[in-house]
Computed example of a mutant assay.
Amino acid sequence: MTVAALLSVTGIMGEMGADLSASLSHFARDEGFVVQSVTVSGRSVVKAGDVLAALDIERGDAILEVDLEAARERLMALSWVQAASVERRLPDAIHVTLVERRPMALWQTGGRMHLVDQNGIAIEGEGAQLALYAKLPLIVGDDAPKYAAELIELLAREPSIGNRVQAAIRVSKRRWNLKLDNGVEIRLPEQGVAAAWDRLATMERTERLLSRDIVVVDLRQPDRMVVRLSDGAVQQMAVPPAKNT
Rank of each mutant, 00 (worst) to 15 (best):
M104I: 15
M16Y: 06
A70W: 04
L210P: 07
R187A: 10
V217C: 11
P137V: 06
R174S: 13
Q108E: 15
V234H: 09
E58A: 05
R228D: 07
M76F: 08
V3I: 13
K146V: 15
A83V: 01
P189G: 06
Q191A: 09
V81Y: 04
G120I: 02
R59H: 01
V116L: 03
L7R: 06
K173W: 14
A54E: 04
V46M: 05
Q166E: 13
V116T: 01
D143K: 15
P240W: 02
A242H: 05
I121L: 09
H26I: 08
I214S: 06
Q108K: 15
E100S: 11
A53W: 00
P103G: 03
A194I: 05
L6K: 03
A201C: 02
L98Y: 05
E73S: 10
A134H: 11
G127D: 09
S37G: 09
A149P: 14
V184P: 10
Q235K: 12
S160Y: 07
N163W: 07
V216C: 09
G32K: 10
E185G: 11
G11F: 07
L188P: 04
G17Q: 03
D143H: 15
H26V: 09
E100A: 12
L188A: 05
V66S: 04
A128F: 05
I161T: 08
F27V: 08
I94W: 03
W197K: 00
N177I: 15
L75C: 12
W197S: 01
L20C: 00
D50C: 03
L52S: 00
R101L: 11
W107A: 11
W107I: 10
E65L: 07
T97W: 05
L209E: 03
R164T: 10
D181T: 15
I169T: 13
L130K: 04
G192L: 06
V234D: 02
I169H: 12
L130I: 08
G183N: 14
H114C: 01
A62Y: 00
A195M: 05
N244K: 11
A238H: 08
D67Q: 02
G11R: 14
Q221W: 14
A22G: 04
F27L: 13
M13I: 07
E73Y: 10
W197Q: 00
R164D: 09
Q221Y: 14
D213A: 12
G232E: 09
N177Q: 15
D61V: 03
E73D: 13
D61Y: 00
R220S: 09
D223A: 13
A144N: 12
G14P: 06
Q82W: 08
G60Y: 01
P240H: 06
L68T: 02
A84Q: 06
G111K: 11
E69K: 13
A156M: 12
A18Y: 01
G125F: 02
G162Q: 02
R212E: 13
L90R: 02
D223G: 12
L52W: 00
L55A: 01
E100H: 12
